[in-house]
Computed example of a mutant assay.
Amino acid sequence: MNDWRIYRGVGQPHDGVRRLPEPPPWRDFAADQDGAESGPEDSSSARRLGVRRRLVENYAPRPAEVDAVNAALYLRRPLLVTGNPGTGKSTLAYAVAHELGLGTVLRWPIVSRTTLHDGLYRYDAIGRLQDVQLERAQGAEGAAAAASGIGSYLRLGPLGTALLPAAEPRVLLIDELDKSDLDLPNDLLNTLEEGEFAIPELERLADREPVVEVLTHDGERVSVHGGRVACTAFPVIVLTSNGERDFPAPLLRRCIQLELEPPGEEQLTAMVEAHLGEESVTAGRDLIARFLDREPGEVVAADQLLNALFLTQHAPRAERLTRERIADMLMQPLDRTR
């Protein structure tokens, strides 16, 4: 069918949605991963790095990026990555985990209401109280059993899970730290420096229950001894920032700092090929060139280019004006005033 449009705006119901093609690889949340490379990774890794992840080796990161990652690995320090939206700050964490075989990336997205406690653990005291009251109504023996099962109501957050003792480090992405309130960067200092934290709810029970099983952020059960979690291998922590605020000097002192530049032609070509294949690179040379030739200081994210390439390949080649209109819509500068 020549008409690529699913929604036509004619007000007449139809079954055109059945013609909707498969989603872009980076937006395919239902992928079963059967055709992906094996390994202890989640689906978000494929979406971030591309379904053809073997091509990540062709990404050719700049020497400064490689040096900063290695400095963070050697010194066991967090890596603070700043840069414009779409420069690959978050993807860097997935690339490190993929290359070093460090498994699923733990992700902690930051919003204005996020606290350190959210990252370390959550205790469902209300849920436990309700269960105790329910068991109490059914008999004293059941109440005693429920009261002792505190581990069922405690779940470690992404930071708490990353700090569990392990032979190899976990990769933790603390995404968009500049979205936090003023206190969070300072609240992180002690935990990032010491690599451990206490769970007061378990410390109070340490005499009676020295070992308690709790849930991790991954949904697995692990044992916590004496109410404290202390890492044996400091996690690979990547903090990202869009540069919207300044961070306190004590946090900067504890981090390896890296500012990512917008991707160049080599990085863009490898990115497009990893997500969409070599044919998309050939067909989209004009859009890649347009992305690279933007005005100095103009902010355009790489995923905008991927969106434009994916969608324009479904518009018939003859509809040049439609293709240009789609590209204009999807590649608008992010810093343009409305």
Rank of each mutant, 00 (worst) to 15 (best):
R5I: 00
I6S: 09
V10Y: 12
P13R: 07
H14A: 10
D15E: 09
G16T: 10
E22I: 12
A30K: 15
S38I: 10
E41K: 15
D42W: 09
D42S: 12
E57H: 14
N58P: 03
R62K: 11
R62L: 05
P63D: 08
V69T: 04
A72G: 06
L75V: 09
L79W: 07
S90L: 00
A95K: 07
A95V: 06
G101E: 00
G103R: 00
W108C: 00
L120P: 02
Y121N: 05
Y121T: 04
D124V: 02
G127D: 01
D131Y: 05
V132F: 04
R136E: 13
Q138T: 10
G142S: 07
S148P: 01
G151N: 04
T161Y: 01
L164A: 06
P165W: 08
V171N: 04
L172A: 06
D178A: 00
D181R: 08
D183G: 15
L184I: 00
T191D: 08
L192E: 01
G195D: 02
A198I: 10
P200Y: 05
E203I: 11
E209Y: 13
P210I: 02
V211Y: 12
T216Y: 06
D218E: 14
R228M: 12
T232Y: 05
F234D: 09
V238W: 03
V238H: 06
C255R: 12
L258H: 06
E259R: 15
E261S: 13
P262N: 02
L268D: 05
A270W: 02
M271D: 11
M271Q: 14
M271Y: 11
H275S: 00
F291D: 03
P296R: 06
G297N: 01
V299D: 01
Q304W: 03
A308F: 01
L309M: 01
L311R: 12
T322C: 12
P333N: 05
